[in-house]
């Protein structure tokens, strides 16, 4: 359930409605419950429409964000973070859904947002040079955060700036 909330955070920051993901339980003996769960979920998704419709976003735009989110979740080193978070739970002994949601939001939402944002900058720069304003208009981060991230990358030589536009350094 902690992973569930983390997944929801990642979906939120990549612009996908977290309602599109559902985690439910049905035991091996509960075939009627399983059919009911699948029927309700299918109905819900049908109402939401294809990916992008309920979100009010262009599908290609979402796919680009998802590509960023995918490398972000790989870069997040999820397991050690979750382990640290779980330790807190066993100390307090409260595993209710609300508490889990609140803890994940508190501890992980910020990291998820900045990680997805920074990966999105890289994905967008792959397609050509962009100015800080271009990026700030699209990426869900503040201009200062983007500037900070670009400067950090610039010091490592991954990106370079000329006449106010950032370019991705060629990889070999």
């Amino acid at each position: 359930m902690i992973t569930e909330e983390l997944i929801r955070e990642i979906l939120k920051s990549s612009g996908v409605d977290p309602e599109r993901f559902s985690l439910e339980w049905a035991s091996a003996a509960e075939a009627p419950r399983f059919t009911e769960l699948i029927t309700t979920f299918t109905k819900k998704i049908k109402e939401m429409g294809p990916l992008g419709q309920a979100e009010g976003t262009d599908r290609d735009e979402l796919l680009l964000k998802l590509r960023a989110a995918s490398s972000a979740s790989a870069a997040l080193k999820v397991k050690p973070r979750l382990r640290a978070l779980t330790k807190g739970f066993s100390a307090e002994g409260d595993y209710s859904a609300d508490v889990i949601k609140q803890k994940v939001e508190e501890k992980l939402a910020g990291i998820v947002k900045s990680e997805v944002g920074s990966q999105e900058i890289l994905v967008r720069l792959e397609q050509g040079p962009l100015s800080l304003d271009d990026l700030a208009g699209k990426v869900n981060l503040t201009a200062e955060e983007i500037d900070g991230f670009l400067n950090k990358l610039g010091k490592k030589g991954h990106v370079s700036e000329s006449e106010g536009r950032w370019t991705l350094a060629p990889t070999d």
């Binding site: 997944i7 599109r20 993901f21 439910e24 339980w25 399983f34 769960l37 979920f41 990916l51 998802l66």
Partner: peptide
């Protein structure tokens, strides 16, 4: 086991064209 699910699975699922993802334990 549902515990095997990694966030990457879900994100890749949506990126590959799923409109909804159901995880059942």
């Amino acid at each position: 086991c549902t515990g095997r699910i990694d966030p990457v699975f879900i994100i890749e699922g949506f990126a590959s064209g799923a409109d909804g993802i159901f995880a059942g334990g």
